[in-house]
Each structure stands twice: as C-alpha cells, then as structure tokens.
Design a binder for these strands. Structure first.
Lengths: 247, 247
DNA sequence: TGGTTGCTTTGATGGAGATCAAGTGGGAAC
DNA sequence: GTTCCCACTTGATCTCCATCAAAGCAACCA
C-alpha cells in the first residue's frame, strides 16, 4: 500500500470530478485502493437514490447534477435538509440505515465506493478519516446556518439566501459576466425551492417575481438567472457572513 | 502510552460526568494522556462561553448545566442552532475560529482539553477520531431533524417537539413517575425556547398554556413540568421518529 | 413595607404567508 | 397544427403567528 502522508490537491483544478472527499482521479494517484473499489452510478431526475431507513451499502460523491436530502412527515409535509452539489459527499461511514431520503433533483452521476471496503480503508488511512471529519463539520456548520434561515428569515430573505448560495457555488463552474454579474440556471423547481426554504411554491414564485421587478435579479425564461450585483442580493438575504459554510 | 483497542464504557453508569465523547473519569483509566491535559471551567448562567469568531483554544464536554449555540443577525434576530446538555461535546478539532456563540443558559461546568494536545492525541489515537466522527454525524442528524421542525411544524408542534426532546433526554436523569409520567424542570426561559423554535416568547407562552389547559402537560410554577403521557405529546409533535437523533 | 427587576401571562390588532382557485406559456407527443 | 401536460404565475381570501401593550407574580433589596 502506497499512501502519502498528505494529499496534494493543487492539481484538482484540472480534475473534472473535483471530489472534495475523495477525488476519484486525484486520489487514485495516491490511493490505488480507492480506485479499485470505485464505480459509477447514474440516476434520472426525480429518482430516489436512497430511501429513508434503507440499508446503505455505499458511500460516494456527486459527480454531476444535484441531489437533495429530504425528510417527510406522515401527513406529507416535506422539508429538504440538504442540497448535494457536484463534489459533495453522501453516506455515513459506520452507519447502517439512511436517516432521510436522497433524491436526484436533476439527472445525477455519482462516484460510489462500496461501504465495507471504504470503511476498512478509512480505518487504515487516518487522513481519510480526518478528511471526513472536516467535511462533516462543514456540513454541520451549513445545516446550522440554514437553521437561521428557516427560523428567522422572511420569505424574501430566504429566496435571496438560496440564490446567493447557488450563485456562489455555481460561480466557480459557470462564467461570470463581463460586468461581474453572475449567470446560472436554477437547478431546482419552485416546489423544490419551497421545500428547501420552508415555504409554499406560490410564495417562492411571488418573491422571485418581486426580486425580478425590483431589478435584484433578471430572469430569462423561468430558470435562467442573472445576478447583476451579488452584494445587493446578499444584503437582501440579510447575510453578514461570507457564506463559507453554506452548502 | 497505554491505549486499549476498544473503549469499554459499561462502567459509565456510575460516572457522574457521562461524557459521550471523552469521559473524563472513565477514559482516564484508559488514556492517561487525556487526564493530563484535562481541566475544568465553570460559567454562570447568561455568560458567553465562546464568542462567534473567537479563537478556540479548547474542546470539551458539558459536565453540568445547559449551554446553547446561537447565531445572531445584524438586526438582532437570533436563532439557537443547538442545545448542549450534559455529556455533549463542544469544539471543532482542526478549526480555528468558533462559528457561533456558545452561551451558558444555566450555570455550566465544562470539562476542557487544550486543543493542541487534544488534536495531537487524536492524530495518534484513531478511535478518538472515529468517535468524534460518529458524534459529529449524530449532531448533523439532530440539526437536520431540527430543520424539519423549524421549516414545517406549527407553533404547537414545535413546543411539543422541544418538550419531548427534553423529556426523553432528561428522563434518564430525573425520575419517572409511578404511572410512567415524566417529570422535569424546564431548563430554558420562554425566550430561549422561542429562540430555539423560531417563535416569539409570547407565542411560546400561549402554546404552553394551551397544552396545559388541554391536559397534555401539567405545570407547577412556571418551570416544573409533568408529562402524563409521552406518547400523546409525541403525537402532538407530529413525531413519527424515535427521536434518536435529536439533541 | 414598598419598590425594583426579571420572567411570564394575557389581550388586541395587524400582516406575512398559506390556502384555494384560475389562468399562462412552453415543450413534447400525436 | 393541435392537444396535452407540466411548471409556473397571479389573484382572492383566510389564518396563524408577530407585534404592541399591559398587567401578574415571585424573588430580591433597601
């Protein structure tokens, strides 16, 4: 087994997969064990990747597309509790059952590792465990920041918060306009946004219309968004943080 | 260094400290290193243990009392994002700054470990890192379950959810009544409950009065609560889960 | 004893967002 | 081209909770 003491991810920029957790390409150079237990799975939009309560026999990272973590009450009320963008990790080493549904919001490609071998690898490779702890702490911070959004922000602020998260997260992938404006396609339906924000889809629609009318955002069609001034949007979100934790 | 491969916490029942993370007494038998870097700190109710953004130079567990994790917006709106009961762990190995305020809700005693030595210990003691990962995953699950409460539950359900958490958490400490009823003292002011639930203190007060009038709970004074039927309360909370993740 | 202070309760009112209900528009299938 | 379907928008109304305001109550102090 050849394991370097430290990961060097300076070359990850070229890696289309960009795993934060276990970059399938980058790490492969360092950990052939990872490579050997790796496989890919595809899911169609709307498909449920993991059902709440199911046995989980793999962990992995989202390579392409968007997946969501969702909790549902008996009467059907649902709350999205996490958004998985490319490079985000899925799975709980050391856990049997999934604590919530994982759904493909768009078409999704995942890079998976069978759980058992991955856990064994983790046990023998301290820095993978350490990396996983760091990532879990990031997720925890994101979840807690989102609790502020859910508990205390107005509908308008909630929308602005979500848009600025996606903008900042997407900005690294999509092009920034010449004037510094950010352009991206909303990867979520109004209903999915509502589920994430603890609102109804009608309220989401109304607030987006309002932001559009006031020039905070521009819409082409229903999904193509331009944000001329991210600072303005973040003010609308009541956002004093750098948003580093979020999603 | 004498480190057993596995922790045996079967004797923790007698341990008043009951650390889930690093039981100061129990682990001391196994890890004298932990003992050597351990110290205690006391905080008065209302005192801020850690300010958001501060350098954190220790990690530790709550030994007695209740602490809360709080986020505050510029305009003063605040949201509690976590409740730390005795045995809960505080701190982010590998992190510099605290992501939110930690406040003593009641008088608090903490068992602390200086961060640097603790991290070094973690690096050389895989199962401590593993234990920390498990705990962080627990916290993440709790945070996400709370997102459902904040996003989708009514005021009444929120109150019932909070009461049943405290009841289940406290039940192991306080006595269960003869009829199976649970008795405990609310460790939070109405305002603190409101901050946790994303409500106003008036709404909290009204909902508690309503639950009392309908016999779901009994109040002696303002804080002493009896829950005659936990099942009933959990129905009120809209709670289908076993609540295993929460707090 | 009376006053202050902090926590809590209760009442009256208003508003943000939910709910119910049409209606729009664009893409795919026929 | 027409039809259907789905995501979305917009309008009307209602309701739950926030807000503002006042008062109750226990502990503590002078």
């Amino acid at each position: 087994m050849t394991v370097k003491a430290q990961f060097d991810h300076s070359n990850c920029e070229d890696c289309p997969i960009r795993h934060r957790a276990v970059c399938a390409r980058c790490d492969a150079d360092e950990l052939e064990e990872l490579e050997s237990i790796k496989y890919y799975r595809s899911f169609e939009a709307g498909q449920t990747i993991i059902w709440c309560g199911d046995q989980m026999n793999f962990v992995g990272s989202v390579v392409a597309g968007i997946a969501s973590l969702t909790q549902t009450m008996e009467d059907g009320r649902t709350q999205m509790v996490g958004l998985l963008l490319p490079s985000d990790f899925v799975g709980r080493p050391g856990r049997e059952a999934a604590p919530y549904d994982v759904q493909a919001t768009t078409d999704v490609v995942m890079c998976c590792f069978r759980k058992k071998p991955f856990e064994e690898l983790m046990a023998t490779t301290p820095h993978i465990a350490h990396r996983l702890l760091q990532m879990t702490l990031d997720e925890l911070d994101a979840a807690r920041e989102w609790m502020l959004v859910l508990g205390r922000k107005t509908a308008r602020e909630k929308i602005a918060s979500l848009l600025s998260i996606i903008a900042r997260r997407d900005a690294s992938i999509s092009q920034k306009g010449l004037t510094g404006s950010i352009v991206f396609d909303l990867p979520l339906t109004r209903e999915a946004m509502a589920d994430y924000l603890g609102l109804t889809l009608e309220t989401v629609s109304r607030q987006i219309s309002a932001l559009k009318k006031e020039g905070v955002i521009t819409l082409e069609g229903k999904r193509h968004v331009t944000i001329p001034d991210l600072g303005r949007l973040m003010e609308e979100a009541g956002d004093d943080s750098d948003g580093g934790f979020l999603v």
